[in-house]
Design a protein around this nucleic acid. Structure first.
Lengths: 404, 404
DNA sequence: AATAAGTTCGGTAACAGAACGAATTAAAGA
DNA sequence: TCTTTAATTCGTTCTGTTACCGAACTTATT
């Protein structure tokens, strides 16, 4: 088979596959109409896909005029992927099938010893979940691991990840691939969160989207033209280093960024302590605010005002259509409300800000999205320069339900 | 001819065209080696291209062992494009051929009456230049107009362009197309500047690139993965509204952005006046600084310190590989020197900053780049989702020389 | 003699499109 | 109400067409 012809073939195969994935049970004639290819071609391609085990006959239509049509569907259990959200304190591991249904989802405290210990912990969690669900190991094709830092594609290390010990000194990708026995990809956790919200949450259908995660630290994820912005060294979205909030020229700002110190949980607690004399946790500040504590309310206002400036910076530079707030602090309605009130005071045109719909699961759903997209692409896709993910809409509800 | 086959065909035709454009005079055998297509196929495609008038035989090789090869070249004058850089005070109009050689370049003060008057002025300039160079009108295929604002693709208007009267109330694209009689595209001027530097200047081969233009105003252009970032409403890069520098919550910041007030020429002059009691022009401040004027030196330091924070914001959000400074102030070595000194004091990892190589011509070269890319794509390209520009390297020197 | 450039010839994968048979419902007539 | 016929749609078969490849061959040169 010649090379360029193979491209042609796969081009069509991919669109047929897409029609089947997205169109649920569908007849060959409908695929032909949808894709614009001839019925004959569709029959050929579907036959090939069936032979390879990716699709199967599932029934026939009835009730319409004309001959009944045989309908085809994805073989959902033809392949599985592992999605991981690795945080400084918790690891979350999920397994999904080709229909994007989450089969198992387990959470554990992150192994504090770091490095290889974490890799082994994750692999064990994944394999436990797989055998619990009776999923054969050889059907798992790929793992996507979200990490709080900047994965370096060349060396497989994770940079700028102070909360995960040892990942800056080892080839993490290789370690995962050894432990799993299949391909693994690393991605920044906030980047995964944007992808998640873009796929199933607040950002559906929005090509230019930003996500700001605010909690113990701050980070942002940015999508432009439907593509993730990763930056030259995967350090895009290291929002903590925005030269805003605290004095960026202080020496401390080179370790913990000026913006992070002003806006993240540490800064909030410090600010509350300065106003009231008491050092309490961030959830306690929110609670006090609800009870009318002046100092707590002032801290929330102040935090939102800083956050608004960060959002303004993103809007001025990248002009996203929507900004989604996430993270333990960013998800609070008290923050959203204030951000919406303050933003128009310092930014000239309206910016659409909302909290994420998927909450703390955004990253793991994003990991599933990127993994499934990758899988669909390698199985049925062209080596297209634009790796745009096109995932089923039909099964979204299924996933969302499974997720709850 | 069937549709999908046409895609296949054009795929190859495009790469053959690319090889000819970039490889200068080249034999069919070399094209075959370069593209990986068979000699036979190349002969066919080249024959077709020759028939259609896009390439022509130009000579034969000699001196090597073996049979002499016939070499082919682009028919440079098969099509022309008009590149325009429209500023608040000056319009610059250039005409380039398919070899990306600039044929004519004229500058005039912008018609202060704005609106249709500017459109007519530009069309007249272009047609004058064309007839001076004996270029037939029907060979001009496209005009690219750089504007200081956010062109709205839906309505054809230009938003956020306070310096161009009337462009926010008319369909500018339609007006240009009427005046020219061929296709016209609008693009933000700083966006064109990044493209220009990416093509022929400081940013060659750099996919993740930022450009900061500092002069009367501030603006930025951002490329991610080789693609321009335009934002949801083409307002990406409105850096003046970065909530930095002046107090962003002042009411004035909604009209003239906080960052613009701090860093652009007005802010510099004000700051000098505050320090010395004299209101002088920005070039005069630079001159005084060279003569050791303390106040002027302080102003430069202060300006650079603000600029550094803007660059830090871009780096934190998008992590470009390089940041190019442009604009009448940004191009000064005194600024670059200070930016390089101050940036490591407030940003944790190194950011590569340089001044633009193309100076004030960056935008018009960018306009040529986008226009030629567009033309090559529509003539020989697939309707590829990734509109990556791939332009000749050979003729770059020619263009650069023509430009000087 | 060696070698590289181009052409000719035959072959093939991936499609299109027309024609046709099969299966079904809707409507018309008995 | 029952049958017949018409209208539709599904899917296959058959016959191109296009865009390629590869091998063999011719031609021109060092």
């Amino acid at each position: 088979m010649s090379d360029s012809l193979r491209i042609s073939r796969k081009f069509s195969q991919r669109s047929v596959m897409e029609a089947i994935v997205q169109g649920g049970p569908i007849s060959r004639a409908s695929i032909a109409k949808q894709t614009g290819l001839s019925k004959q071609t569709i029959s050929e391609i579907v036959r090939a896909l069936e032979l390879e085990g990716w699709v199967k006959e599932t029934g026939r239509t009835s009730g319409h005029v004309g001959r009944t049509a045989v309908t085809y569907e994805l073989v959902y259990d033809a392949a599985y992927i592992v999605a991981v959200d690795l945080g400084g304190t918790k690891v979350r591991v999920a397994i999904t099938d080709l229909a994007c249904q989450i089969f198992a989802e387990d959470t554990e405290p992150t192994d504090p010893r770091g490095g290889q210990f974490i890799v082994d912990q994750i692999a064990q969690l994944a394999f436990q979940a797989a055998s619990r669900q009776r999923i054969a190991r050889n059907k798992i094709r790929l793992a996507v691991v979200g990490v709080p830092g900047a994965p370096d594609a060349q060396t497989g290390r994770v940079l700028l990840a102070p909360n995960i010990a040892g990942f800056d000194k080892m080839d993490v990708v290789a370690a995962f691939e050894r432990a799993f026995g299949f391909d693994a990809m690393l991605e920044n956790d906030v980047n995964l969160a944007v992808l998640g919200e873009n796929w199933l949450g607040q950002g559906q259908g929005i090509d230019n989207l930003a996500y700001v995660a605010l909690g113990t630290g701050v980070g942002s994820g940015l999508m432009v033209g439907g593509q993730l912005v990763r930056g030259a060294i995967n350090a895009a979205g290291e929002l903590g280093f925005l030269p805003l909030g605290a004095d960026p020229f202080e020496a401390e700002s080179l370790r913990t960024g000026a913006f992070e110190r002003a806006v993240a949980s540490h800064g909030m607690a410090d600010r509350y302590a300065a106003l009231s004399g008491r050092l309490i946790s961030v959830p306690a500040i929110f609670e006090n605010a609800q009870n009318g504590d002046e100092a707590a309310l002032a801290v929330l206002d102040e935090t939102a005002r800083y956050l608004v400036r960060g959002i303004g910076a993103i809007a001025a530079i990248a002009n996203p259509e929507k900004v989604i707030l996430g993270g333990s602090i960013g998800l609070r309605p008290e923050i959203l409300e204030r951000v919406k009130a303050f933003l128009p005071q310092c930014f000239p045109y309206p910016v659409n800000v909302e909290t994420g719909e998927l909450g703390s699961r955004a990253a793991i759903i994003g990991a599933a999205a990127i993994g499934l997209g990758q899988l669909h692409n390698t199985l049925f896709g062209v080596d297209a320069p634009d790796g745009r993910i096109s995932l089923p809409r039909a099964s979204m509800t299924a996933l969302q339900e499974a997720v709850r």
